[in-house]
Design a protein around this nucleic acid. Sequence first.
DNA 1: AACGATTTTTAGACATGTCTAATAATTGTT
DNA 2: AACAATTATTAGACATGTCTAAAAATCGTT
Lengths: 219, 219
Amino acid sequence: MYSRSEEDHIKAVHGLLEDAGQASTTGIAERLRTRASSVTDMLKKLAAKGMVRHTPYHGATLTTKGRRHALALVRRHRLWETFLVERLGFGWDEVHEVAEQLEHVSSGPLIERLDAYLGHPRFDPHGDPIPDAEGRMPERLTAPLTEAAVGVRHRLVAVKDGSDALLRLLDGKGLTLGRTFTLVARQEFDGSLQVGWKGGGCDLSAQVAAHLLTEPIDA
Amino acid sequence: MYSRSEEDHIKAVHGLLEDAGQASTTGIAERLRTRASSVTDMLKKLAAKGMVRHTPYHGATLTTKGRRHALALVRRHRLWETFLVERLGFGWDEVHEVAEQLEHVSSGPLIERLDAYLGHPRFDPHGDPIPDAEGRMPERLTAPLTEAAVGVRHRLVAVKDGSDALLRLLDGKGLTLGRTFTLVARQEFDGSLQVGWKGGGCDLSAQVAAHLLTEPIDA
DNA sequence: AACGATTTTTAGACATGTCTAATAATTGTT
DNA sequence: AACAATTATTAGACATGTCTAAAAATCGTT
């Protein structure tokens, strides 16, 4: 139905609207490692197909149809990433490329069965929310670690902006996404925050802690 | 590395060499639902890349490199089919299209992990052999049902030529691939053969029976 | 062995998606 | 408000993969 390239452009527009509130021609070109002129061509094409609204010299936005398709792509991408990590044992930092290919495999039944097989996960291994089949994003009760209640068990569910670099740094400290822990104390002692969990704990700079999103355990 | 279309042509050449012993331009065009002239173009291209030997007016054969790639594609296709049927619960007759897309996803680690996840299956849900990572096909100790020993437990492992129509007909009689049964008797009684299994059995025409490949249970 | 039918290749056209270079619009600064 | 810098679009080229129509080679018959 839609070519690989068309889908890549739709996803880029969607991502930029989320991240920056607007999708400029250059922005899209940078995401896709292509040229602005190529993007202009594609935006015209997608506008003709009713996926995108393109105001020349003022970037693009998604139509309802375009948004629906973008969310379907995000859904596919995140479900495949979940499969690759949880079932095939890949590291969360190894799966993006492959998921990028798998997300273009087009079959409704495939993705719905995969979703069921994985137990209808609501968040992917990076902590990003997985839209449901109708494009609805799951709600989250998260708060930055710096605002979480002391003495309560929490789960580390995501990192602000999904920074892989930060995620990697945390892995080194034994802090992985999905890990549960109890916040032992919060004190601006020399700009550091103590986090405790079963069998361990670590100190974090307040700056790092502000980027960590946690959720009370029962939620 | 190789485009979707290049891979489709390589697989078509491989399939025709297996089925018919030769791969003619028209034969390839029919498999791919394309035109002979397009195939000629692609054969020239693949010959230049060292995947295929193309003798003008005399069809194509695969080089060692081409055969290796073709077997890798067959491996991917059959592993994905196995995943779709055994894990996602698709019927064996629903998976071809999707596997056709999945087989072009290119990632060595992906396919080796998938293989391990599935328990290194040697045959796919259609009963077709799955080449290993080096392109070796598993051996089979099969014999047509009409030559199988009476009174011994057998497993139905494949159907000659992999005919989907025949497979479907058998499904109707309660005979599915992978089913085990004991051959109760073999007698040319009115051209029919009796097959018995736990809780049942059925009569088959001798003609149908000759197409069924069985394997002694322990093998 | 020659001829007609079939198969294959070549030649030239077209669609898609990309690029560079040139042009046009917008933006920020003075 | 005007101009330089930035950003976007257009124009024209090219690669890939496909097609139709025409020409060339092969095959099957007699």
